[in-house]
Design a protein around this nucleic acid. Structure first.
Length: 504
RNA sequence: CGGGGUAUAGCUCAGCUUGGCUAGAGCGCUUGGUUCGGGACCAAGAGGUCGCAGGUUCGAAUCCCGUUACCCCGACCA
């Protein structure tokens, strides 16, 4: 049988991405246009993301709640920027009933028209602030630090699994504060949570910064973001944190009495990350053999493949595999494995050839694979294979079984670290300072990457660049030495360099 | 909404130009056997309203008309 290879990144990057999603069993397109079915292997990654982030939210004082999927259409209109920003992508509920037509299925019952149409939430600021109005009367009610895990719908015209789908899963934090300073601090604090999560759990290096005026969230005073570089050198906005000022408090009349007995509008933030992170995870680490998942988010940490050509050998190696699995599960717990024990799978599918099984597990991105065959049994040893070095290169032969569990534990931690280092080295190698617009136009096409350039701060210049090169300002980075200069397009004065890139 | 394309087995597709009698292949699936340290092989088998509706014809997957859905490019996308 011919090897069932996936497309290579060099040959066809977007096909490679689709092949990974498909062959690793992460998700598939559903019969509903633009909506995806997240399959168990992909959903488990999401669960791991949720678990880690949820802990970080709780540790910073937030609690979870749940607000409705449907929002009265009029709510959206109360905050003008938001209405403008989201109007074009809202699904609308106009009727509450169908009627069955014998032999013809069902049709919308015209009698059942809603008096006020509902929209399916594209984000929940409006309904949440409409609710907060009743919860906030005094400065003693603040701060209000709430998060929700939910699905949202944005009727996108073109969709890609995980990266942009009509319906997606996310978390949205919505906080209310008594002072502007406190809300701004919260906005930055949650961005820092995202940065930490992206780097320490996803092993995905990110730039932190502010969105330009043209790229900010509708309804925000400003938007902060984390931006990651994918292997095709395009940028992915991986998370955003918004300082909403008093925009929503004013739109929904959320006022409280301060300590000085004055009536004041509350200050707001909102922040979110979505299933898009899984797309980012794929495009940060995976290779031409398939998915690569950093150990801390891996659905399965270790797969053990007993090998044998007859029932006796199979039974013997499987027993050793089970014992090693027990050793691994008995390892001391810490947060590295995502607040749970290590996840071990013993692959007893002797019907398939060993080579097939090895390739299959590499495709699925299991960080460490253990092979135990008759030869190993004879010497009380096993073979360890690390996913970040696929094929025979990443194999360590003759590892004594007695030491295997601790070695695997160390190996997983090393893989996590190496994946981050590799991704960071790639990102840094493809991030350049640039001063000439002509040069920029060439290099943004090939090889591409992140370009640090001076910009005069105007929307016109940003739009001109976007039109001519398809590159946008990804962020105005925090951690960059302030350096005065001249805009690469207009020559007007610039206070600092900003990051340009093509993006998803 | 504009431009192009596709619809045949679970999946990927051939067959259509030039109509023909039992509609094919590969992969996958089932059963049996041989294999087994990097994508094994043999044999047998199951699986189809040829998107839907109409027309032409002795005869339609194939030609004509209509229709629906989906895909790609563009427009769109904090």
């Amino acid at each position: 049988m011919a090897a069932e290879k996936i497309s290579s990144r060099a040959q066809d990057y977007s096909q490679w991405y689709l092949d990974i999603v498909n062959r690793a069993g992460l998700a598939e397109n559903s019969d509903v246009r633009g909506c995806m079915v997240i399959k168990p292997h992909g959903y488990t990654i999401w669960e791991r993301i949720q678990r880690a982030l949820d802990k970080m939210f709780k540790d910073t004082g937030h609690v979870n709640a749940y607000f409705p999927l449907f929002i009265p259409k009029s709510f959206l209109a109360k905050e003008e920027q938001m209405a403008e920003g989201f109007a074009k992508e809202c699904a609308v509920i106009t009727h509450y009933r169908l009627k069955a037509i014998p032999g013809k299925g069902v049709e919308v019952d015209p009698e059942a028209k809603l008096d006020e149409e509902l929209i399916v939430r594209p984000t929940s600021e409006t309904i949440i602030w409409n609710t907060y109005k009743n919860w906030i009367q005094s400065y003693r009610d603040l701060p209000l630090l709430i998060n929700q895990w939910a699905n949202v719908v944005r009727w996108e015209m073109r969709t890609r699994l995980f990266l942009r789908t009509a319906e997606f899963l996310w978390q949205e934090g919505h906080t209310a504060h008594a002072t502007e300073a406190e809300a701004e601090e919260e906005t930055h604090k949650m961005l820092e949570v995202y940065r930490k999560f992206a780097e320490e759990w996803m092993a995905m290096p990110v730039l932190t910064g502010t969105k330009s005026e043209g790229q900010k969230f509708p309804g925000a005073v400003y938007t902060l973001c984390i931006e990651a570089m994918m292997q095709d050198r395009k940028a992915l906005q991986a998370g955003t944190s918004h300082f909403l000022g008093q925009n929503f408090a004013k739109a929904f009349n959320v006022q409280f009495q301060s300590k000085e007995s004055k009536l004041e509008y509350a200050w707001a933030t909102s922040w979110g990350v979505s299933t898009r992170l899984i797309g980012g995870l794929i495009m940060t680490h995976s290779d031409d053999q398939g998915l690569v998942v950093p150990p801390r988010l891996a659905p399965i940490h270790v797969v053990i493949c007993p090998i044998g050509k007859n029932p006796e050998e199979q039974k013997a190696t499987a027993e050793v595999a089970d014992k090693l699995a027990a050793d691994l599960i008995a390892l001391p717990r810490d947060e590295f494995y995502g607040y749970d024990t290590i996840t071990v799978k013993v692959d007893r599918d002797f019907e398939k050839s060993p080579g097939f099984r090895f390739n299959e597990w590499e495709l699925k991105g299991v960080p460490v694979r253990v092979e135990i065959g008759p030869k190993d049994l004879a010497s009380n040893a096993c073979v360890l294979a690390r996913r970040d070095q696929p094929g025979k290169d990443g194999k360590q032969m003759g590892v004594p079984l007695a030491e295997a569990a601790t070695k695997i534990d160390a190996l997983l931690r090393d893989i996590q670290k190496k994946l981050f280092e590799k991704a960071k080295a790639f990102r840094d190698a493809n991030m350049h300072q640039i001063d000439s617009y002509d040069d920029f136009k060439k290099k943004i096409e090939a090889p591409g990457g992140f370009f640090l350039a001076h910009w005069d701060g105007t929307k016109e210049t940003e739009e001109k660049i976007a039109e001519e090169t398809k590159a946008t300002i990804r962020c105005i980075p925090f951690n960059l030495a302030k350096e005065e200069g001249k805009c690469m397009v207009t020559g007007n004065p610039s206070k600092q360099r900003v990051v340009f890139a093509k993006s998803y």
